[in-house]
Each structure stands twice: as structure tokens, then as C-alpha cells.
Design a protein around this nucleic acid. Sequence first.
DNA 1: AAAGATTTGTCCGTATGTATA
DNA 2: CTATACATACGGACAAATCTT
Lengths: 235, 235
Amino acid sequence: MPKYVNIYHELAQRIQEGTLPAETKLPSETELMHEFEASRGTVRKAIDALQEKGFVRKHQGKGVFVLSQEAIEFQFNGIVSFSEAHRRMGRHTVETDVLSCEVLSASAELASLLHVAQGTDVTRIERIRQIDGERVIRDINHFVTALVPGLTTDIAQGSIYQYIEETLGRQISYAKRKIEARPATMEDQERLDLHDMTHVIVVTNDTYFYEGQHFERTESRHRLDKFQFTDIARR
Amino acid sequence: MPKYVNIYHELAQRIQEGTLPAETKLPSETELMHEFEASRGTVRKAIDALQEKGFVRKHQGKGVFVLSQEAIEFQFNGIVSFSEAHRRMGRHTVETDVLSCEVLSASAELASLLHVAQGTDVTRIERIRQIDGERVIRDINHFVTALVPGLTTDIAQGSIYQYIEETLGRQISYAKRKIEARPATMEDQERLDLHDMTHVIVVTNDTYFYEGQHFERTESRHRLDKFQFTDIARR
DNA sequence: AAAGATTTGTCCGTATGTATA
DNA sequence: CTATACATACGGACAAATCTT
């Protein structure tokens, strides 16, 4: 592991333990150089990483200050899958039913959305998520089969992202999200326990690999009262 | 301006102009060193910034590759105010009515949310946003008065963030957002044109200064069919 | 108010390691 | 195996912002 990563971990740990409390100043770069027997550039790289992750804030001429723990806890933005998201919340029963998992030929519309040629093989997966016994989320995934081969019902039952990253060894880079409310369709009413709610919240997700290939478009349809999205925006 | 920023701007411009098209490789660090008469570290810092902004992707041993224009256009995440957001969308009439702008004493609940002592002065602003003549958004802001002094109805009519950054000269660092659907309250029904819609989408926003001070909590209540949120998540 | 010390920001040059072609 | 390209690390110099004397 690179030296600056070790320094980063060491400092991050001190901050999380409280050895370096919020509002206090980090040792100066010169002091850290001596403590870790590293060059100034290496120490600076570690501190830059700490700032990137929201642990500290640098001020020219003043020093480096530890930010509040609260700011640090909010690092769980990024791409969050359904199961990841609910593990964080309170105790809930979560169950996934895979309704279908099939390879089909991309229509003109879908091909355009996924940036592939019409007729390209696409794997379509439809899943229902039950929380505490109620069917409240309906996920419809479309994967470019050539980029994400070997999908099965079994995999869809668990975490598809885990399969992509660990089994296929591909790295996910970024996702574009759109969140909006839409009138519930007939299919939504059939497959979800909507009670008398007339709308659903639709989260449209386009996900890209590190190399920039667009490999997925997913529509996630949520019952109004079971939807929540949390996020942190930096600038 | 620092040298690496100049190099960054120059390369970013070439990418946006198409002089460096997507999928192609950037000149190597050695070549850029000669072209810009800069050291390797300086060139690397510029390239790192390009990658941070989503223009390029670095690959050890291979080179630096320009990403698609589409990926680049999606840089407008971050903290987006109402008026900024609608300038981007199509042609719409947007009007803001300031219902109230008053300083009050923080209740126990509000004080806890804003991390201040109970009884601290808080400026409360309530605004209605009309799009194409329909009242569809209701914003309720709470600012810590000591941190954001001098707010008036006139300022609330325009952009409060612009006032904070330009007039007060303070830098906004990050915002925590929560998006969820809630049953419409009586006040929502009075002050918005909800027609028969029973729910609103509530965006709760907590905003922090660069120094880490929590200065604002805002609730933005949207009519279901006029809400849309777009965002890009990197990891 | 001015001078000096401290701390972070930028830039340079060099050397070596690691992944890829 | 060799060459290329990016990654890491070191050391030194000066600039800019801030704090102390």
C-alpha cells in the first residue's frame, strides 16, 4: 500500500477515535513529516485525501482543522443499491422476488437510451421488493448483455452490483439519477400494494463503467410513503 | 492564477471544442511538460483536476482518455437553487411570491435541527413559486440570523444564495438533502394549486458553510407532477 | 503599525516502481 | 524483454495567507 494511504488511514482513525477531536488543528505538515518520516509531498497527499473525504478542512496560513463527526458520517452518498440502503435504516424485513430474468432484443427506444444498436441483446430483470411484508418497490433493470453477461435469477435474488464488481471484476464509475413522481400504471397497481395511492415515485438510473461504457438503465418504482432519498452535495 | 489551473483550462477547452475528441488519448505527461514548459507534477495536477471534473480518465500504463461529451455535460450536480434549476429547463414563466420574512426565536425542535441554543434568532422565510401561472412549490427557509444577517423581502425575491456568497462573502461548502413524499397539509392545500393531489414531495435541505457551520434548514414542498430531481453520483 | 515566524500553496527536478503495449 | 506511460516518493525553493511579537 502506498505510504500516503497509510498516513491517511492513521490520521482518519485518530479523528474517528477522538484522539483528534473536531475543531482542533492537525499537526503541521512539518510535524507530520517527522512523525511519519515522509516527505512533505507525501504528507500533503494524505491530507488532501482526508479533505476529499470530508474529515478536515485546510486553510492557507492557519492550518488543517478537523470537521465535526456529523459531517463525516454523511459519506454514504454515491451509488447505493436497494439492499445496501435498507441495511442502514432501522430493522426491517426485506425480501426480493424475481418476477422475470430474460434476454431480449433492444427496441429502437431502449437501444437509444442505452447507446447501443437496435436489436442488441439486453437482459431484462423485473423484481418486487417487499418491506415488512408489503410489496412497495418494483425494479425493472435493463443490462447490455455483452457488458454484463451471465445474469441469472439467482444473482438477481442477491446483489447484482456485487456480481458485477466481484465476479465480473468490473468497476462502476458513476450513475445518473432522475427522481420524479408519475401516475401509477396498471402494472404498478397489480404488482405493488398501493392501497389508494394514485402515484409512484420513479427513480431512473443510468450506470456507467469506469471506462465510460453505459451498461444499465433501471427504473425503480416506489410506493409514495415508502420512499426516501438522502444525499450530500458538495461544491 | 496558478500554472496548473491554466493548463487545466487550456486542456478543458480543447476537449469541449473537439480538438481533443472523446475516446482519444491525451498527449503523455512528458509531451505536455514540453508543450507547457512545466514540471511533471504541475502537469499531473492539471490532469487530476480534469479527471475530478469528469473530462478524462487516467489508466496507468495506457494513458489518459477523453470521456464522452455526455458525461461532461452532467456536471450540474451540487447545490442547485430553484431559479438556477429552472433556467436550465425549457421556457417557463417562473414567479416568486414572498409570503413572509421575519425573525423569530428558535423553538426547542428547530434549535436542535440547526445546532443552536433554544431561543436563538432565526430568520424564517416562506415563498411560493409559480410556474406557468400555477402555484406549485412552497419553500420554507430557516436561517440562523447571526450567520446570515440582513435578509429582507427584496433579497428573498431574488436569489438568497447569491446574497450569501456575493454580498456576505461567505462560501457554501455542502448540503445534506432528503427527498420524500408526504401527505399534503392544510396549508399546502391553501397555498398551492394541488388540484386533487393528496401528496407533496418534500425536499429537506441542510446547508453548511465552508468552516462547517450549519446555517440553514429549508423545506421545499413540491406538487407531485412538477417535481424532478437530477443528479450524478460518482464513486 | 510593522516585522518576523508559522503554515499551507505552488513549482521544479530527480529517482524508482508498476501496469500496459 | 524492452519501451512507454502513469504512480509514488524525495528534496528544495519561493509565494501567499495568517498569526505572533
